[in-house]
Design a protein around this nucleic acid. Structure first.
Lengths: 113, 113
DNA sequence: TGCTGATATCGATACATGCCAATATCGGCT
DNA sequence: AGCCGATATTGGCATGTATCGATATCAGCA
């Protein structure tokens, strides 16, 4: 499922209400960000020098099992926030900045609404 | 609980990873936005002329029971996305634009990360 | 081929969450 | 006081999800 296509030409929240379909599509991404571990994973990937991290970097950063980290990575991938690439034995995850940028633009309300 | 205080002077995601506390605080808000109904409620409130809506406007916009809408409004209030004010028999909800703006700034990554 | 380290998937469990019906509360009105 | 419409809270149920241990897959290497 291609994520967030509905959002491509949508207006910021302040312009007009989201349709049920738009709302569902966007909520999927916010829901993925709505877990503390996943949000921190995104922040680690986003701020990491080189733009990508190996899974082993992440399992070391949390007191969680490797399957749990792998599960969260899958969720983030499914909503289009991360992409992964296998190189040798390691899998590297990179941020998809466009997805975050779309979300950011969507909720970007004028200071004095 | 005052929402998002930890975020006041935090850096965008791309600068440095969120601490566990920051991550948890921010994730609460994303989690609230991660439900299709709540996201649409926010969009309805945000785009409504006058900047506020009565609960009765919302119960008519969804095929959900009044208690369910009330529940979602409570969640949105608890994370600081909405505030409410009672006037006579009606309760009006308004957006807290600062909360959305902080989120927007946090996830605002440069176009070519 | 067989071994080893890295990552993903599976199955189970405990907990959280969305929903509704029923009920409570709150303000205004008679 | 008593009633009524609007909103909130409660209790219960069904579903979703975060987590783990066990296991499978994958890539390199001997």
């Amino acid at each position: 499922m291609e994520p967030l296509e509905l959002l491509e030409c949508s207006s910021p929240l302040t312009r007009e209400p989201l349709s049920a379909e738009q709302g569902a599509a966007v909520a999927r991404v916010f829901k993925a960000l709505g877990d503390p571990v996943r949000l921190r994973i995104v922040s680690i990937v986003a701020s990491h020098a080189g733009g990508e991290v190996c899974v082993c970097d992440l399992t070391g950063a949390f007191e969680l099992s490797q399957p749990t980290i792998s599960h969260h990575l899958k969720v983030l991938k499914e909503v289009g926030l991360l992409v992964s690439e296998r190189r040798a034995s390691w899998v590297y995850y990179r941020l998809v900045p466009e997805t975050l940028a779309e979300l950011s633009a969507l909720i970007n309300v004028p200071a004095t609404a």
